[in-house]
């Protein structure tokens, strides 16, 4: 009865808003709407600055392979290609590792180890991207050139993808860096998805005589597959938007590449690399247009991921 009375009192108080209430509600609504307005302003501003380039280049922008500030001819195709390939490598390498981590943290690790280990893996996300880039230039790059790339080549060298002399500052290295950088995102969200699998599913498999791995495969991974898929898409969202680490390791050549051991460029790295050197409003506009494309791509990827894993998301785990 007492609780009921409080509830009624509450309703009555809510109906009689004081002037202070109105001001406060008005203020917070105004601020919230201005945040929405900000996004609109962003889109409009980007469009305005890119307008010149959109008008001059038209749809050819997406297919043209030349970026030349002397002849003022700008095409985005090599960067879209570079973005797709590096993100592809990142997913190919990052997803299995992240999944292994998620399985270990949710199914296999002894309970006392789970929380500290989860925390340490998450620290990977706290390292600034420029530090990854620095590490990529001076540690990972040489390691790739001297050990990893020749190693890969000796096994898969017959494929056109792995031909040419390894240089360490190439598309493959950028992909590996991206893989490392998306591991915390994918493993954290996958882990949430695995933890959401009810224990009754695990018991069902165990009671059939399944081993621990078989239980994981049969009951846990199958149950959580949508969440794992969504986590990977979320990782993809991070990979396409990542800028500094890629800029510093990919070798920065605005052209198509056939082998992963060649330098390349992604949309983000092209923006960061050319920004301060953009000589004309047209080139600046073309860079901003690249930004618009990137924004659109990451919006689509993230909306898709959100659809799949929205309930496992914590704030700030979207694309960078």
């Amino acid at each position: 009865m007492h609780a009921l009375r409080i509830l009624r009192g509450g309703t009555r108080a809510r109906l009689s808003a004081t002037p202070g209430d109105l001001v406060f509600e008005g203020l917070s609504t105004l601020v919230a709407l201005s945040v929405v307005g900000l996004l609109v302003v962003i889109t409009v501003i980007l469009y305005l600055v890119a307008q010149e380039s959109i008008r001059v280049n038209g749809l050819r922008f997406l297919t043209d392979t030349i970026w030349d500030s002397v002849s003022q001819r700008f095409g985005a195709a090599p960067f879209i290609y570079g973005m797709l390939v590096t993100s592809g490598i990142a997913l190919l390498l990052g997803v299995p590792v992240s999944l292994g981590i998620a399985i270990f943290l949710s199914e296999l690790a002894p309970p006392w180890l789970r929380i500290p280990l989860t925390f340490i893996v998450e620290l990977l996300a706290a390292v600034p991207s420029v530090v990854y880039g620095l590490w990529g230039i001076f540690v990972l790059g040489p390691a790739m050139r001297i050990y990893i790339e020749p190693g890969v080549q000796s096994v898969l060298g017959f494929l056109p993808l792995f031909q040419g002399r390894p240089i360490g500052s190439d598309v493959f290295t950028a992909g590996v860096i991206l893989a490392i950088m998306i591991i915390p995102t994918i493993s954290a969200v996958s882990r949430e998805a695995l933890l959401a699998v009810p224990d009754s599913q695990r018991e069902a498999a165990l009671s059939l005589g399944a081993t621990r791995w078989e239980t994981t495969r049969l009951a846990v991974l199958r149950y959580a597959r949508a969440g794992i898929f969504g986590a990977s898409i979320l990782g993809l969202g991070r990979a396409v938007g990542e800028t500094m680490a890629v800029t510093m390791t990919i070798g920065n050549r605005a052209a198509f590449f056939g082998s992963l051991f060649e330098p390349g460029q992604t949309i983000a790295s092209q923006i960061a690399g050319r920004w301060l050197d953009a000589s004309t409003p047209l080139e600046l506009g073309a860079l901003v247009e690249l930004g618009l494309i990137l924004m659109l791509v990451s919006l689509i990827i993230n909306a898709f991921a959100r659809l799949l894993v929205g309930r496992f998301l914590r704030v700030g785990e979207g694309a960078e």
Partner: peptide, 21 residues
């Protein structure tokens, strides 16, 4: 334990079929 559980089956309180199968 694995072979024990194969010889001694179990049915639980709440039905728990694998929903993805």
């Amino acid at each position: 334990a694995v072979s024990v559980r194969r010889r001694i089956g179990m049915v639980f309180q709440k039905p728990n079929p694998f929903p993805t199968m």
